[in-house]
Design a binder for these strands. Structure first.
Lengths: 223, 223
DNA sequence: GAACGCGTGGCAGCTTGCTGCCAGACTGGA
DNA sequence: TCCAGTCTGGCAGCAAGCTGCCACGCGTTC
C-alpha cells in the first residue's frame, strides 16, 4: 500500500500559487474539459498555456478542449474558441453537462475542480498515475463521441421547432407519406411540404441524408 | 491545502482485504465502467455486490454497468450480462475502449484500476470528494452517450461489411441512384439491390429510417 | 461437359416521392 | 369592407425509387 501525491487548494489564487508551475511544465499534451469558458478567469494560467502553445507550435504538442453546448451561448465566447482553434487546439462539444472542470497535463498531472463555495472553488491536484490514467481514458471516451466545434456550429439542429420534430418522428416511424399524413391529420401535399422544409433546414439532398443528419444530431433521442 | 485520503494496492487479494468493506457499504449507487468482464475474478467482490442487490431490491438502489463492445464477444458473457440486468442493473455499451476499470460507490468512494503488472493489478482507492465528483460527472457523460445493451444487441450494426459501408457512404453523399451507381462503376439495378439489402439489414422501411439508424449507430463516423 | 449456385445487368411496370400551379380559408391591419 | 400575407389542399406531371423477371457470365461440383 502506497500513499499518493494528492492535495487540494481553495480558490484560483491558491491554485496558481501551488500548481501554476505545472501548467508551464506542459510538454506534450494539455487536455481541458469544462462546462463553459467562465473558469479560467486568472490571466496567469491562460497566459502560461498560450505561451506554451506558441513556443511549441509544430513540435508535437497537442491541446484539446472539451466543452458543453452552453459554452457557445454568446458570440464573444465563440470568437474566443475560434481563436483557440487557430492557435492549433482541437475543440469539441459534448452534449453532457460537464459540471466539473478537468485538466490533464502530459498524462502525468491532473486537476479536478469541485463546487463553487463562498471562499472560492476547490481544486484537487494529483500526480497519481492510476488516477491520471483512469481519468485520461474517461476523457478520451467522451472526446470520441463528442462532435467537432466546426461541424457543431455548422449544423442548425436547435432551429427545429416542435412541428419539425413531429414531422421528424413520423418520418422516423417508416410509414409512407400517405399513411403519415393521415396519421397527422393533414393532407399529403402539406406533409410533403413539411418534409421538404425540414430537408432544407437540414441541408439534405435526399431523405437518407436527412435521416443521417437527424441521427447524428440525436434529435429524436430517448431520455 | 489539505491532504486527501488516497491509497493504492496491488493485486485483487489486497484490494479485497483493504477495500472489501467498501463494496458491502454501498447504500444507494454502484457504478462500474470496464472494458470487459474479465476483471472481477475474485468471487468475494462479486458476491458482495450481488447480495447488496438482492437485499435492496426496490429501495432506490441503482446499479449501472458501462462496458465496451468487446465485453459481448462470447455467449457466456452475454448470458452473464442478461443475468445482471434481471437483477435490476442497467447495462450500457460504449464504443470507447475503456482500458481502466472505474468503480464509484455512493458517490463517495472511487476505485480506479491501473495496468496489469507481474505482481498483479494496481488499484487506487480514494474518498476525496472533488476527485469522486469529477470522475462521477465524466462517467455520467459517457453513460449518456452510450447505448443500452438491449438496443445494442438488437441492432446488427457490426454485421456490415466493407461493401455495405461503401454503399452507405455513397448514400450519405446525397447523390441520386443513377449518379451513385455511375460513381461506383456498377449498374443502377445492382446499386439499388445493394441499397435494398442494406435497408433489410438495418430493418428500415424507408431510406430515411436507414439514414437515421446509420446516424445513430455512427457507422460512417470520422476518426 | 452438364448442372448448379451466385452475382450482375437490362427491361418493364408499378409505387412513391417531389414540386409548380391554382384555388380556397384564415388572420391581421388599413 | 377590402386587401395583403400566410397556410392549406387538390391536381397534374415529372422524377426517383423499388422489384419481379429473364438472360448472361463465372466458378464450383459431379
Amino acid at each position: 500500500m502506497r500513499k499518493e501525491q494528492v492535495f487540494s487548494v481553495r480558490g484560483d489564487a491558491e491554485l496558481i500559487t501551488r500548481a501554476g508551475h505545472l501548467f508551464e511544465s506542459a510538454q506534450a499534451e494539455f487536455l481541458c474539459g469544462a462546462r463553459d469558458l467562465r473558469t479560467w478567469s486568472q490571466p496567469q494560467a491562460r497566459a502560461a498555456i498560450r505561451n506554451r502553445m506558441r513556443a511549441t507550435d509544430s513540435t508535437g504538442f497537442t491541446s484539446r478542449k472539451l466543452l458543453s453546448p452552453v459554452a457557445l451561448a454568446d458570440e464573444e465566447d465563440r470568437a474566443h474558441l475560434r481563436m483557440v482553434q487557430r492557435k492549433g487546439a482541437a475543440v469539441r462539444i459534448s452534449s453532457s453537462p460537464m459540471p466539473h472542470e478537468t485538466i490533464l497535463i502530459d498524462r502525468r498531472v491532473m486537476i479536478l475542480a469541485g463546487r463553487h463555495t463562498p471562499t472560492g472553488r476547490e481544486y484537487t491536484v494529483t500526480t497519481s498515475q492510476p488516477l491520471v490514467d483512469g481519468v485520461h481514458s474517461l476523457f478520451q471516451a467522451i472526446w470520441d463521441t463528442a462532435t467537432d466545434l466546426n461541424t457543431y456550429l455548422h449544423s442548425n439542429a436547435p432551429h427545429l421547432d416542435a412541428d419539425g420534430r413531429l414531422i421528424l418522428q413520423t418520418l422516423a416511424s417508416g410509414l409512407t407519406d400517405a399513411s403519415a399524413a393521415k396519421r397527422l391529420g393533414i393532407s399529403l401535399r402539406t406533409y410533403r411540404r413539411r418534409v421538404a422544409d425540414l430537408m432544407a433546414k437540414l441541408e439534405a439532398d435526399s431523405r437518407f441524408q436527412a435521416g443521417l443528419r437527424a441521427g447524428e444530431l440525436g434529435i429524436p433521442r430517448k431520455k
